[in-house]
Computed example of a mutant assay.
Amino acid sequence: MKVYSTLLLLFGFCCPHHMAAAETIIVVANTSDKSIKLNRQQVRNLYMGGIMPYDLKAIALPPENHTRVIFNTKVVGLTESRIQSYWAQMRFTGRKKAPKEIKNEMSVLEYLQNHEGAVGYLLAGTPIPDGLSVIYTVR
């Protein structure tokens, strides 16, 4: 029992740091202007169809993807069901179109490399190819 308690104690002290690092999100763009840096509100506007000072097109991961859940929680600030409801209303009224969904993180990187102006989100630590730049980081 003492060994079990000690392991639990050690696990509790060492893992929150690793879990927090694993949940850091980076927003990556393919843009010729490498000086572009966005704040949280600008990224939220980009993903929710708001006004943007740059000509950027958001892409998203599918709703069941864990990275998307983290992104929605930390950046958009809405649950998946609220986001889906919002986009259903926007489609119905013909006002805005939801970001294009890409099946997984590797496909996001491939899409970004091939589409100038595209913006996607990934977990921090994902190797970013040359030509792409990180425009926002949220911990």
Results as ranks from 00 to 15, higher is better:
M1F: 01
V3A: 13
V3Y: 00
V3E: 12
T6K: 13
L8N: 07
L8P: 00
L9D: 10
L9W: 01
L10Y: 07
C14S: 14
P16S: 11
A20F: 14
A21H: 13
A21S: 12
A22M: 11
A22N: 11
E23N: 12
T24P: 00
T24Y: 03
I26Q: 11
I26D: 06
I26C: 06
V27L: 01
V28Q: 07
A29W: 03
N30H: 14
T31R: 01
T31G: 11
S32R: 10
D33A: 07
D33Q: 10
K34W: 04
K34M: 09
K34G: 03
S35H: 06
I36R: 05
L38V: 05
R40A: 14
R40H: 07
V43D: 02
V43H: 01
L46Q: 05
Y47F: 15
I51P: 00
I51Q: 11
P53M: 06
L56N: 04
I59S: 06
L61Q: 05
P62M: 07
P63K: 03
P63Y: 07
E64R: 05
N65G: 02
N65H: 13
H66K: 09
R68G: 01
N72R: 03
K74I: 02
V76R: 02
V76G: 02
G77C: 03
L78Q: 10
L78S: 06
T79V: 06
E80S: 07
E80P: 00
S81R: 09
S81W: 08
S85C: 00
A88M: 09
M90V: 06
T93W: 04
T93S: 10
G94N: 03
K96M: 13
K96E: 13
K97A: 10
P99E: 10
K100G: 00
I102R: 00
N104H: 13
E105Y: 03
M106D: 14
S107A: 15
V108C: 04
V108E: 08
L109H: 08
L109K: 06
L109V: 12
L112Q: 08
L112D: 08
L112F: 10
Q113K: 14
N114T: 14
H115I: 04
E116N: 09
E116T: 08
E116F: 01
L122Q: 04
A124Y: 08
G125R: 09
P129L: 15
G131P: 08
L132Q: 12
L132P: 05
L132T: 11
